[in-house]
Structure formats: structure tokens, C-alpha cells
Design a protein around this nucleic acid. Structure first.
Lengths: 205, 205
DNA sequence: TATTGACACAACTTCTCATAGTGTCCAATT
DNA sequence: AATTGGACACTATGAGAAGTTGTGTCAATA
């Protein structure tokens, strides 16, 4: 029965983070009140403080959880098409873009703009998140499609991640269409040798 | 002699914009004072107002001029290597990244963050600038390397522009190294057919 | 025709004060 | 043993008033 307490604790954590997510998504991190958060879950303010040592700790945990969810979603998108690189990338990117369209936290992660003081320490973290996503995707692709040239693969992953972030900031089409284009681009990079023959240039005017 | 007045006018404009650039680059647009600006050039505040109808007009002209300069630099970068697509892209991107590293206006254009209220109406404009750069580069490449497949070309230009902006925001290497990578990526996309053979996937774990 | 000085008005500081929120401790409770 | 509610010091945060500074326009001037 030693596990029981632990289970209750993590359950409480989740419930608290759920409530925090709602409030932060709706009104922003700076409008979040510890008293309200405790009230949402039906627990005293001090119980909340025994779980999260400070408001900043709540923000940190929230950020971390959301990032993990995002990565899981990407992972699933890739997993859904183990035999089709293009479809896999398209699914992963599409998931991310759709998520970013609604989820203000993910949006903030990718854009790294403090956006109304959502999370002050976010700018630093977003670079790490960026890195993590790139590394994860890179590892996955390396394992699933080992025949792809390492240089091209690394370049393709970096390209896909950066283009995705770019489309979050400046969307020129729907998430689906953007995902299609990004997947197309990534595949072209991944399957290139880097030694393609350059066509002759046109005569100068 | 009808041209004389006009010449003086445009000269005054340039001098005013030079002074404005200095001040904006140093202290930001919101710290810019019309009185100081007039004083820098040694002209009365009203003469300044007869040239630029408002402070916003100064910002607009400043933005426009800087954008034109940037596009000219890119153009020259491309022109410098009429027979080598990779080198051309590398030069143009390298120029942009280096410029963005120092020039706060260009930086603001690409990142589209209001950054300390530099230019309030910039967010809207940056999308236009983005478009303009893409269109310009696209037209140039289409004329200089007509043998490149239109679909691949369009995708490559879009990729190069977006990646450049991405590297302005999140640089992972020096401008030169970033330019090299972006050029490599763009060339791979440009010279791909989109029908490359997919390698077999690895067996699932 | 450009400059100067004066002007109304708007925007931005700088206070002040009042309120509300954070983080901590402890006695009471279950 | 953990949770609670109350009480606490301290700090943000916001509203509001007063004073300052800057914008944009006008008429008088040289």
C-alpha cells in the first residue's frame, strides 16, 4: 500500500495542472491566481503549495507537460506511417500546426514571444524545446529509415522543424496544406544526394 | 532649374532618414522625438513636418528605405554568382543574416515582433515584406535558372526565405555557416524531382 | 518660403494610495 | 500524518490625480 499515497499525489498533480491549463489558456499565466487554482480542484491553498512550491513551479510543470504531450503527438503522427516518410512527416507536422492553432502554450513555445507575460522564463526554454523536438525527430527518423543519408537526414529534420515553426508564425495556407508542403520539402531534402547536377544558367540580360 | 528644388527636397529627406535611422537603431522608434530629429539635421521642426506629415510617416519611409536596401543587397548577392545557384543563395542569405545581426530594423521586419514598440504597424508590414522578398527572389531565380522545375523552384525559394527568417530568430551557428546550410537545403529542394524513390523502412521494433 | 514662437490637445511619467496576491507559519481539525 | 483555515509580512498590481513632455497646427516674422 506504499504506492497509494504516491498515486493520489500524482493524481492531484494532474488535476491541478488541468485546472491551471484551463485558466492559463483562457486568461494567461499572469492572471492565474493560486487561490483560484486551489479552489478549482477543491483543495486548500496550502495543499497546492505542498505540491508546487511556487507559482513559477506550476508554470514550469505546465510547460513541461504540454511539451511532452506535443512530442507524443508528433511521435504518434510519425508512427502512423512507418512505411511512408512523406505521410509520416505530413501527419506529424499537421498535428503540430493544428495544435499550435488552438493551444496558446504550444504557440508560445514555438514563437518564443512572451505574449502578454504568459511565461517570463519561456524565451530561454523555447530554444531547449526546439532542440528537443529536433533531436527526437532526428533519432526517430534515423531508426526508422536508416537507409537515408545521415547528412541529408539531419538537414531534412532541421528543415522540417524550422519550417513548421515558421508556418506557425506566418501561415500562408491551412494547416493541412502547409503540412503537405513541408512534408514535400523535407522528403526532397532527405532523398537528395547533395551532388545533383546544376542546370546551366540563363544568359545574362 | 525646375529640378533644383526637387533635388534639395530629396536630399533633405535622405538626411532626415539617416538621422532617424541612427536614433531608432540606438534607442528605438518610441524614443524618437521629432524635435531632436529636426535638430540633428539643423532644420526647424516645421520643415520636418512639411517633409513628413507625421512621425508615423517617418517610420513608414524609414521602413521602406531599409527594405529596399535589403532587397538590393540580396539582389547583388544573387548577381555575384550567375553561374552557381548554391553560391548565389549562400551569398544572398549570408548577406541577410549578417545584416539582421546588426540592423534592428531588418531584424524587426523578419521577426515581426513589436520589440519595444519599435514600429507599431510593423506586424502587418512584415508579412508584406516577407511576400515581397519571396516574390523577388522567385522571379530572379526563374529568369536566371529557367531549367529548374517550377514546382521545385517555388518550394525552394519559399524554403530559403523561411529558413533565413528562422535563423534570424533562432541561430544555431554563425551567419556564414547558417547560410551554407540554407543554401545546401535550397539547392537540394530546387534540384529534386519530387519523385525520388523512398528507401525501405526499417522493421518495427 | 523657411523659421520662430505660441497653442490645444494627447500621451507618457510619477506619485500616491488602496487593494489583492504570494509565500510562510501555526493551531485546529479529520 | 495530512489537510485545513486563519493570520501574517511583504510585494505586486491597478486606479487615479498631477505634472511633464511631445505631437501636430497656426499665425506672425524675417
Amino acid at each position: 500500500m506504499a504506492r497509494f499515497r504516491e498515486t493520489v499525489r500524482t493524481l492531484l498533480r494532474e488535476r491541478l495542472l488541468d485546472a491551471a491549463f484551463e485558466r492559463v489558456a483562457r486568461h494567461g499565466f499572469d492572471k492565474l491566481r493560486m487561490a483560484h487554482l486551489a479552489g478549482d480542484v477543491g483543495v486548500s491553498r496550502q495543499t497546492l503549495y505542498s505540491e508546487f512550491s511556487s507559482k513559477e513551479a506550476v508554470g514550469e510543470a505546465l510547460f513541461r507537460r504540454e511539451l511532452e504531450r506535443c512530442l507524443v503527438g508528433i511521435q504518434q503522427g510519425l508512427d502512423a506511417h512507418p512505411d511512408d516518410l512523406r505521410a509520416a512527416v505530413e501527419a506529424a507536422v499537421g498535428f503540430t500546426l493544428t495544435l499550435a492553432g488552438r493551444n496558446p502554450l504550444i504557440r508560445a513555445m514555438l514563437t518564443s514571444t512572451g505574449e502578454g507575460g504568459l511565461l517570463p522564463y519561456l524565451t530561454t526554454r523555447s530554444a531547449a524545446a526546439f532542440d528537443l523536438a529536433t533531436t527526437m525527430a532526428g533519432t526517430y527518423v534515423a531508426e526508422t529509415w536508416p537507409s537515408i543519408d545521415p547528412v541529408a537526414r539531419e538537414l531534412a529534420v532541421d528543415t522540417a522543424v524550422r519550417l513548421t515553426a515558421s508556418h506557425v508564425v506566418q501561415a500562408t495556407a491551412s494547416p493541412e496544406e502547409s503540412a503537405r508542403r513541408i512534408a514535400d520539402t523535407a522528403v526532397r531534402v532527405a532523398l537528395s544526394t547533395g551532388h545533383e547536377r546544376l542546370p546551366a544558367a540563363a544568359a545574362r540580360a
